[in-house]
Each structure stands twice: as structure tokens, then as C-alpha cells.
Design a protein around this nucleic acid. Structure first.
Lengths: 192, 192
DNA sequence: CGCCGAGTTGAACTGAATCAAGAAACGTGG
DNA sequence: CCACGTTTCTTGATTCAGTTCAACTCGGCG
């Protein structure tokens, strides 16, 4: 399956675009590569693109004084960008960083907006993506409010084992809102 | 200004609908009233409506064992519903409750979907609302991860004084993810 | 007038942070 | 492919923010 087909599959799960609509989108795709630790979007920059990850993974994090707070991780076959910056076209409060070599395709803000303007279906894809982002954040909000660090880790073990197997203690801890030392103790206590 | 005009204003700030499009929406509005502590949507119910609050206020909360965790408050001229349940049409994990007498208008899920299907502009309103919900949740996520209870309270004092003036210590504490006793101490320490 | 829920205050407790130090893993150059 | 330096992970000791439990105050309402 070609990179472009990967994206087509992901989008068509939401809405089936016409051939013409898909063309508007596909014409504007551009393949890009990042090395480990490169920034897809650094803090302060206005995000111009949505990325679709073909291979590799990325994290989105916020810098709070000396520590980094991770908001999310994104893996293969997922879209990633500093959505807040992209949507509002204002400087990003968060950084998007490759945690590994990343091969991605990206599409420019203008192309997305062209699609929204030209196509009702395109607009719908935008709505469905925004809704699913909202749902994910709501679930996370409930977790952050209601679970202790240990419960959250147990939760990940069940629902997102990929997180635990692919991410460093440091990054995982910052996602859970705790210090690496604490996560280390939790892992030790639970027995991996 | 009539209740319907209030809604029209709120929507038209996002996108200007045509007269025909607005008709589809307006025809399906229904005014409803709730007494203090009534549920607009109890836990477990599939949310059928989006509400627009003309007067009063409501909160959205999650029940975790014996305690209630508040996800949000909604005031006059705002939309409210159990969005997750509404969007997915699955039983609600959260309750939406009137904190005072509430006068609202509501529109049914089917009517919203009819609007989405018939109108590109309607779809766009849906997208913009979903995006703004997402942005709000992202900001809250950053606050929950990065701020101590006291910092969060200071934050509210600046950005959401309405919360502090209109809400009980109990509800506000559950929104901040702390116990009422802790919030009481913070208020005392800061000097109101 | 008396009750009842909401708010406050105090004392003891606890989960997680912090600071510090050592062990393991990692990648970079010789 | 090994040696070295750097980062990451773990473990221990101490501290701290926030919880818990209990008692007391206050204001509103029957």
C-alpha cells in the first residue's frame, strides 16, 4: 500500500469522498521526513500543516518552566499537528517532536481550507475529526481528574499497551503528570 | 431580544446561515424549563438534545464512586449537553444538571443531523463548535497537568471570575480536582 | 426557634515531589 | 567492536501539597 493510499483509507473511514474531492486533497500532499528529536512544530511557530504519520511516532508537549508535560503521543497511521495552533493560526503553545525517525505526509492549512470551502464532504471530515479529538480529550480529562498515578498506569496497560512498550519512562511519566521517579516506583511495585 | 434571536446571534457569530438554513434550525427549537437540581441529562441516558441556556446555569459532572468530578459549567448564552453522548449516541458517562432554575431551548439530534445533511454551512457550524470544544479541553488539560490547586484558583480569578462568584465551594473544588476543605484553605490563604 | 447543609478550621496521614546517588543503556568516535 | 561519556532508570531519604476525619460556625428556611 502506497503512503497516499494509507491516508485515503484513514479518511474514507470517516466519509467517502468523490474522486474529484479526493483529488483536491491528494494533489496537495507532500511527503516529508524527520530525524529523531526533530520538531514537526516547535513552540512559538504558527502551525501550517497537518501531518499523517506513515512510520515512526511523535509526541506533543507543553513546556512548563523546566519540565515538559506531554499531552499526547501519535503513532503510525495517525494524524498529528499542533491542532490548537493550526486551527487558530496563532503561535503554538506546544511542540510536536519526532521520537524516532518519522516518515509522514503533510497538507497545508490553505489546502485544507480550500477543501472545506469546495466540498461539503470535506467539511464533514473536518467536523468528524474535531469531534473525535474532543472525545479523546474528554476521556483524558476524566482520567486525569479521577485516577491516581497508579490507576492511570493500570489503565494504560489495558487500553494503550503501545504507549508502555514504545515510550521511555520519562515521556510516559510526563504524560501521566508525574515524575519519572514515581513512575519507576509504580512499575516496580506492580511488577512491570 | 427573543430567546430565538439569542440563539441566532450565537450561531451567526460562527457562520451566517441563509434564511432557509436558519429555518431548518429554528423550526426545530423547543423551549424547556428546569428547576434547580433537575437533570438535563442523567448518567446512563443517551443524550438526544443540544441545549442553549437563556437563563440560569448548569454543570457537567462525572460520578467516581462516592464523589462528583465536575468537568464544566455552562452559563447564559452558552450551549450545553453531554456532548460525548450526543455525538456518539451512546449512554452518557456524565450528568448535566441545572444548578439553578434554567430556561433553555433545545434541538433534537435528528434535526441537527438533518441540518448537517442539507447544508454545507450547517456542517461548518458543527465543525467550528467541535473545534472550539476541543480547544477549550486542551487548555484545561494543560491547566490540570501544570498547575497546583492554588495556581488553578488564581487562574480562575483572572480568567473566569464568573465561576468564583456564582459557584459553591463544593462544586468549584470538584472542578479543580480537590476537596472542599482544600479550596477553603486556599481561599483563606489568598484572602478571598 | 431549631435544624440542616455549606463552609471553615484543626490534626494526623499519605501519595507523590524533591534531592541525591548509584546502575544500566545508549550512541558516538576512535 | 570496544571505550567512553551522556542520558535514562532505579532506589533511598526527606519534604510537602492535599486528603481524611472530626468538630465547630454560620446563614437560610421550615
Amino acid at each position: 500500500m502506497t503512503p497516499t493510499d494509507q491516508i485515503k483509507n484513514a479518511l474514507f473511514k470517516l466519509v467517502r469522498l468523490t474522486a474529484a474531492e479526493w483529488q483536491v486533497f491528494a494533489q496537495n500532499l507532500e511527503e516529508v521526513n524527520f530525524r529523531k528529536n526533530d520538531f514537526l512544530c516547535p513552540i512559538g511557530q504558527v502551525e501550517q500543516y497537518i501531518y499523517f504519520i506513515h512510520t515512526g511516532l511523535a509526541r506533543v508537549y507543553f513546556q512548563k518552566e523546566s519540565e515538559e508535560l506531554t499531552l499526547n503521543f501519535h503513532f503510525e497511521n495517525e494524524f498529528v499537528t499542533s491542532f490548537s495552533s493550526f486551527l487558530t493560526q496563532t503561535p503554538s503553545r506546544v511542540a510536536v517532536q519526532a521520537l524516532d525517525k518519522v516518515h509522514a505526509s503533510r497538507i497545508h492549512y490553505r489546502a485544507i481550507n480550500a477543501l472545506y470551502n469546495q466540498s461539503h464532504n470535506g467539511e464533514r471530515i473536518g467536523r468528524l475529526i474535531a469531534e473525535s479529538l474532543y472525545l479523546a480529550k474528554t476521556n483524558r480529562e476524566i482520567d486525569l481528574l479521577s485516577l491516581s498515578a497508579e490507576e492511570q498506569y493500570q489503565n494504560l496497560l489495558q487500553k494503550n499497551p503501545k504507549f508502555i512498550s514504545h515510550l521511555s519512562v520519562k515521556h510516559l511519566a510526563s504524560y501521566l503528570g508525574i515524575q519519572p521517579e514515581s513512575l519507576s516506583r509504580i512499575r516496580n511495585k506492580i511488577g512491570r
